[in-house]
């Protein structure tokens, strides 16, 4: 392994995976899997600490802070609060605009509080374009994709983690190598393939190619490798078959990874523009992302309406994020902690 593989911290060095492709470049997420001990307790890694509520205790009193004394903290807070404001203001501004009457939109300098407020922008936007339909389509595509993708990745990850067969490493590297190919490079052939299959303007076209997810396969393999072998033996003695071992043991024991992957998948698919853009043609099949893009093409300058539609498109994913925040953040930390 190259020098960059060395652990960056005090997390226990995971056995370097000999099958990770040396040349798979940047996408070589040799993730540090959460270690599942026999007792099922995860030993905290940096990723988990980030995902947790608090910084590790030692981090609380830091050297820098001591050095800067009383003026350090306020400076940090000022910076953070300014940054946070920069993050939030566009959302608030969007929301404010979405409640304005069209004539108030064009005011300079801008007004923050809509007066008069016009909540009817929302029903208007929802009737001009079938956003409810778009949302339902997105939900269907995203959930189906996520469920199937996790299933497929778990199956492949299990096979690569626990079975020995000829060409295993070669096949695994081939799968990983596809992580390097940018999706846009594959667009045109995929379009041709979908046309050949008669899948243009169907949800399959969005779902099926997206199910096969090399990164997911890789991550779950890493996790499954940390499940103690004796647990699997115990399950075999108890009469469990391979599928039952996979879905009744390996998967439940890898829930952090499954959750992180599921959330990534959900986010990617929900937010994806290019696939719906090239595979879908009829409006009633549009996902919310494509629907919104199309809507803005038509109502380019009706800002109040457009902002209302954008809010509608954002609310579901932001809600999902706020509910599953822990897993989102854990997932991101996981993907970057150790390559």
């Amino acid at each position: 392994m190259s020098s960059t593989e060395t652990s960056t911290g005090d997390t226990p060095a995971h056995e370097p995976s000999p099958h990770a492709p040396q040349g798979a470049g940047s996408q070589r997420h040799l993730v540090q899997p959460l270690r599942v001990a026999a007792d099922g307790v995860h030993h905290a890694s940096g990723a988990e600490r980030v995902a947790g509520m608090e910084p590790p205790p030692q981090a609380r009193v830091s050297h820098m802070q001591r050095h800067l004394g009383w003026m350090g903290k306020p400076l940090y807070y000022a910076t953070l609060i300014f940054g946070a404001a920069m993050m939030v203001v566009p959302f608030l501004w969007m929301f404010s605009t979405s409640l304005k009457v069209e004539s108030d939109v064009f005011q300079f300098p801008p007004e923050w509080l809509p007066d008069p407020a016009r909540p009817e922008n929302y029903p208007d936007a929802l009737t001009i374009a079938p956003f409810a339909r778009y949302l339902a389509n997105s939900a269907f595509v995203t959930i189906t994709d996520t469920v199937f993708s996790l299933t497929v990745c778990a199956m492949a990850g299990y096979a690569f983690a626990r079975f020995h067969f000829r060409f295993r490493n070669t096949i695994f590297i081939a799968v990983l190598a596809t992580m390097m190919v940018p999706v846009h490079v594959e667009l045109i052939p995929q379009f041709i393939l979908m046309r050949g299959l008669g899948w243009i303007d169907t949800f399959q076209a969005l779902i099926v190619p997206s199910i096969f997810w090399p990164f997911g396969i890789f991550l779950l393999r890493q996790f499954f490798m940390t499940v103690p072998k004796e647990l699997e033996d115990a399950a075999r003695m108890d009469g469990a078959g391979h599928l039952r071992i996979l879905f009744g043991l390996m998967v439940p024991l890898s829930l952090p990874a499954m959750a992180a992957l599921g959330i990534f998948k959900f986010m990617f698919t929900w937010n994806s523009l290019i696939a719906p853009l090239i595979f879908l043609t009829s409006r009633e099949k549009f996902t919310v992302t494509l629907g919104l893009a199309t809507f803005q093409g038509q109502y380019e300058t009706q800002w109040a309406l457009l902002m209302a539609a954008t809010v509608v498109a954002l609310v579901p994913i932001i809600t999902v994020f706020l509910i599953g925040q822990r897993y989102f953040i854990q997932g991101v930390a996981l993907s970057g902690l150790k390559r």
């Binding site: 946070a84 959302f91 523009l273 919104l292 954008t310």
Partner: peptide
């Protein structure tokens, strides 16, 4: 802070683009 800074990450680029166009 983490939540706030992460908010744009989950928002689709399309929505973010429209928001920022405004």
């Amino acid at each position: 802070f983490r939540t706030v800074y992460f908010l744009p990450v989950v928002s689709s680029m399309v929505a973010v683009g429209i928001m920022w166009r405004w």
